[in-house]
Amino acid sequence: MMPDLGNYAAEVLTAYALSVGLLVGLLVLSLRRSRKVSAQLAEVEARKDRADV
């Protein structure tokens, strides 16, 4: 069910679409950054383990 938005339907739907798009973009950037940082951490830990031996 979609409420009747009257004369402002285009503006409201555009705002919703932009908001969802920004949220998806932030999610994608966060996940990419998380993978990159996890890989860097694994590399640092591997170097530390080699140095301890």
Rank of each mutant, 00 (worst) to 15 (best):
M1W: 06
M1D: 05
M2D: 07
M2Q: 13
D4P: 05
D4Q: 13
L5D: 05
L5R: 03
L5W: 00
G6W: 04
N7L: 14
N7D: 13
Y8W: 10
Y8E: 14
Y8A: 12
Y8F: 15
A9P: 01
A9Q: 09
A9E: 09
A9N: 06
A9D: 03
A9S: 07
E11R: 11
E11W: 05
E11F: 02
V12W: 02
L13H: 02
L13F: 07
L13S: 02
L13P: 05
L13N: 05
T14G: 08
T14W: 03
T14P: 01
T14K: 13
T14C: 05
A15F: 03
A15H: 11
A17F: 10
A17Y: 10
A17M: 12
L18N: 15
L18T: 06
L18Q: 13
L18R: 15
L18S: 11
S19A: 06
S19Q: 07
S19F: 04
V20P: 00
V20I: 09
V20G: 02
G21S: 01
L22C: 01
L23I: 07
L23D: 01
V24R: 01
V24D: 04
V24N: 03
G25D: 03
G25L: 15
G25R: 09
L27Y: 07
L27F: 00
L27D: 00
L27M: 14
V28F: 08
V28Y: 00
V28T: 11
L29Y: 12
L29S: 10
L29N: 12
S30M: 04
L31M: 14
R32N: 10
R32C: 14
R33E: 08
R33N: 11
R33A: 11
R35T: 12
R35E: 07
K36R: 15
K36Q: 05
K36Y: 13
K36A: 09
V37Y: 00
V37K: 06
V37T: 05
S38F: 11
S38P: 04
S38D: 14
A39L: 07
Q40I: 01
L41T: 03
A42I: 05
A42D: 14
E43T: 03
V44H: 09
V44M: 11
E45I: 02
E45K: 15
E45L: 15
E45R: 15
A46I: 03
A46F: 01
A46H: 06
R47D: 10
K48W: 07
K48P: 02
R50W: 09
A51L: 11
A51S: 05
D52T: 12
D52M: 14
D52H: 09
D52Y: 06
D52N: 11
V53L: 14
V53A: 13
